[in-house]
C-alpha cells in the first residue's frame, strides 16, 4: 500500500515540475511579501539572538563581546540545571498521558454515534480555549481550602492536597492541566490515522474470532503507530516550551519548584534584563527541542520500516 502511494507521489512530482518548471521565476512575486515578513520576524530575530548570546549584554550597560562565556556559564548555574530537569520531567509526563488518553478517545470517536460532531466539538474545547482563562479557573479549583478538587477528593475519602501550592505536587498538578488541555490534539491526530485504516484486516480478525484487545493490539495499534509518533513529536515540542499555563498559575513557584527552561529564560531576560545570558539560554533551549524532535523522528523511521510494514500486517492477517 505504501509502495503504491510512494509511486503516485513520485509520479505527481515529476508531472508538476515537468509542466511548470519553465514558469518557476514568475512565482517569486507571490512569495516575496511573506518572505519579507519571515525574514523580519523569524530570521532576523534568530540571527540577532545568536549575536547577542556572544556578548555581555545588559540593559543600560555597554555591551562587550565575550565569545562563548555565556554558554560556559550554563552548566555551573544550578537554577538552569534544575530547570532542565523540571522541563524533562514535565515533558515526559505531558507527552505520555495525553498519548494514552488521546488514543483511547480517538478509538471511541472513531465509532459512529448520534451527536458525534457536536460531542467532538465539546471535547476539543480545552485546547482551543484561551490558556490564561483556563489557568485562572484551574487555580481556583486547586485552592486548598475552597477549591472544588479537594471537595471532590473528600467525597471519595482522599485527604486534601496542596496541588500547585506545594513543591512536591506542583509539577504533577500542572501536568494534569496540560493533559486536560492537549489530549484533544492527540485524539485528532490518531483519529486521522484510524480513518485511514482499511476494513479488511478487521473483517478477517472477526472471522478468526479475535477479541477487542487483540484487535487493538495486533491491528489497530501497529497501523496507527506512525500517527502516534507524529502526536508524540508535536506534543514533545509543545510540552517542552509550555509557558502560559505555568506562568499564569505558579510563575515557576513555589520557590523554583516548577521553573522550566522557558520560565527561567523569561526571568533572566525580562526580570534581570541579562539579555546576553538569556539569548544563550534561548539558543540552547532551541537545540534541546531539535534534539528531542530528531530523536523521535529517528525512532519513528526505524519502527516504521522494520516492524510496521513487515510484521504487523502479516501477524494481523495471518
Amino acid at each position: 500500500m505504501s509502495e503504491l502511494a510512494e509511486r503516485a507521489a513520485a509520479l505527481r512530482k515529476t508531472e508538476t515540475t515537468g509542466a511548470l518548471g519553465w514558469r518557476r521565476p514568475s512565482y517569486w512575486p507571490f512569495i516575496i511579501p511573506a518572505l519579507v515578513i519571515v525574514i523580519g520576524v523569524i530570521v532576523f530575530p534568530w540571527a540577532f539572538t545568536i549575536w547577542m548570546s556572544l556578548n555581555e549584554w545588559k540593559v543600560g550597560a555597554p555591551t562587550t563581546f565575550v565569545g562563548l562565556a555565556n554558554y560556559l556559564r550554563l552548566p555551573g548555574d544550578p537554577r538552569f540545571v534544575e530547570a532542565v530537569w523540571h522541563t524533562l520531567l514535565y515533558t515526559l509526563l505531558s507527552v505520555a498521558l495525553p498519548l494514552i488518553f488521546g488514543t483511547f478517545a480517538a478509538c471511541v470517536f472513531h465509532a459512529r454515534f448520534p451527536l458525534r460532531g457536536f460531542l467532538r466539538g465539546l471535547f476539543i474545547m480545552p485546547m482551543m480555549a484561551t490558556p490564561v482563562a483556563i489557568a485562572l479557573v484551574w487555580t481556583m479549583m486547586f485552592h486548598p481550602q475552597l477549591g472544588v478538587l479537594n471537595y471532590l477528593l473528600s467525597l471519595i475519602g482522599v485527604p486534601p492536597q496542596l496541588w500547585i501550592f506545594h513543591p512536591a505536587t506542583v509539577i504533577p498538578s500542572l501536568v494534569l492541566v496540560e493533559t486536560w488541555q492537549w489530549t484533544p490534539l492527540v485524539m485528532l491526530i490518531v483519529l486521522g490515522g484510524l480513518a485511514a485504516i482499511p476494513s479488511e484486516p478487521y473483517e478477517s480478525a472477526q472471522i478468526d474470532g479475535a477479541n477487542g484487545w487483540q484487535v487493538f493490539r495486533f491491528i489497530t495499534f501497529p497501523l496507527i503507530l506512525p500517527f502516534l509518533f507524529i502526536a508524540a513529536m508535536v506534543r514533545t515540542i509543545d510540552a517542552v516550551k509550555s509557558f502560559d499555563i505555568i506562568f499564569a498559575m505558579t510563575q515557576g513557584g513555589p520557590g523554583t519548584a516548577s521553573e522550566t527552561i522557558n520560565l527561567y529564560l523569561y526571568s533572566v531576560a525580562f526580570a534581570y534584563y541579562d539579555i546576553g545570558y538569556g539569548s544563550a539560554i534561548a539558543v540552547i533551549f532551541f537545540v534541546l527541542i531539535i534534539v528531542l524532535a530528531a530523536l523521535l523522528l529517528y525512532v519513528r523511521q526505524r519502527t516504521q520500516w522494520t516492524q510496521l510494514t513487515r510484521e504487523a500486517p502479516a501477524e494481523a492477517v495471518a
Partner: peptide, 27 residues
C-alpha cells in the same frame, strides 16, 4: 506550485521555536 519544499523548513523552525526567543531581539 514551485515545489519549494525547503521554504517549508523555515515554517517548521518557526513552529518549533519558543515564542520567548523572538521576544528578546524584537523587544
Amino acid at each position: 506550485r514551485t515545489n519549494a519544499t525547503k521554504a517549508a523548513i523555515v515554517i517548521l523552525i518557526a513552529r518549533i521555536t519558543p515564542g520567548l526567543s523572538y521576544l528578546i531581539p524584537l523587544f
